[in-house]
């Protein structure tokens, strides 16, 4: 697993797991436990169907016509039509929402990760007055219900002229990712051996150079995890743009969806196309980076 410090557990696949399944469990098992094994299989694969079916229904509905959907709820897209996507993309404004989501999410992740790397480096590699307080201050953010500050956030952005603005949203989003990122990155920076830094200093490298050219490249896997972990909830977030963005040209996908539903109440097939458009990027991301995402999810173990 790529999170050795913040996941205080051995890698699942190599360590205990392989010890746990010696051949003994295969051949010499009594009939009762073989039946139990079969029942477990049925349960697991049965639930896999439950987990997948709704997503397949979503894709299938997006490829059928409105009339077909109303006539045969259980029908399949035997003659798939892509018209729903075309219309949702242009008439339904999903092109705008998609662009906004990409801009806002990527901007937030870059800004949030950027400032977190700097702060985490300071917290991990230097000791200074107020170090403990500062660490605790960042750490406290892990459990703060930040949505409850929405009214003051609104007035704060208003006074900065950032209401109805993607920049304003990016600032709030980037800030919301700071506690988790600082937490994970600090753990990683702490792990790096001191000798590296000493050697670099002997060779005459300055503090900034050590940071940028030696330390940061070494925590690249952690950076990936942290970035992914900001990306997912921010891409999916609905509450902040609902309140902070009033202009539909600047809606992100989740708010755009509610807007679409309110406007085209009966366009079920198109709505499904919109749902797929919203979901696809994260599903692709998840399938590409399953390992990092799983590692990040289980990083909560050490909190």
């Amino acid at each position: 697993m790529s999170l050795p410090v913040s996941t205080p557990l051995p890698p699942r696949r190599t360590g205990a797991a392989s010890v746990a399944d010696p051949p003994r469990t295969r051949a010499g098992r009594p009939p009762r436990s073989r039946a139990a094994g079969a029942a477990a299989g049925v349960l697991l694969w049965g639930y896999a169907a439950v987990a997948l079916t709704p997503l397949l229904v979503m894709v299938s509905s997006s490829l059928r016509t409105e009339a077909d959907l109303a006539d045969r709820p259980l029908g399949l897209p035997l003659h798939p039509v892509f018209e729903n996507y075309a219309r949702a993309w242009s008439d339904g404004n999903f092109s705008t929402y998609f662009t906004n989501s990409v801009l806002v999410t990527c901007g937030s992740v870059l800004l949030g990760t950027g400032v977190s790397v700097l702060a985490a480096y300071a917290l991990a590699r230097y000791r200074f007055f107020g170090h403990g307080v500062m660490s605790a201050y960042f750490l406290a953010g892990l459990m703060l219900p930040i949505r409850l500050g929405i009214v003051p956030v609104f007035y704060l952005l208003n006074s900065l002229g950032l209401i109805d603005s993607r920049i304003g949203l990016i600032c709030v989003y980037a800030a919301s990712g700071v506690p988790f990122s600082v937490f994970v990155l600090t753990a990683f920076f702490r792990q790096l051996p001191a000798e590296l830094e000493e050697a670099a200093r002997m060779d005459g490298a300055g503090e900034l150079r050590i940071f940028a050219q030696i330390m940061v490249p070494l925590v690249r896997p952690a950076l990936m995890t942290v970035a992914l972990f900001q990306f997912i909830p921010l891409w999916n977030d609905f509450f902040f743009p609902l309140v902070l963005i009033g202009n539909s040209d600047k809606y992100t996908l989740p708010v755009g969806l509610t807007h679409f539903v309110a406007e085209f109440e009966t366009a079920h097939a198109q709505l499904n196309a919109g749902l797929v458009i919203t979901t696809i990027p994260l599903v692709v991301l998840f399938l590409l980076a399953t390992k990092q995402i799983v590692a990040g999810l289980t990083a909560g173990m050490s909190r």
Binding site: G112, A119, L144, L148, G149, I150, P152, L156, C171, S176
Partner: peptide
């Protein structure tokens, strides 16, 4: 420290 601290304080802690 300052960039992270500012962002986090201004947009998370201060509103709360």
């Amino acid at each position: 420290l300052l960039p992270g601290l500012t962002l986090y304080t201004l947009f998370i802690v201060y509103p709360l």
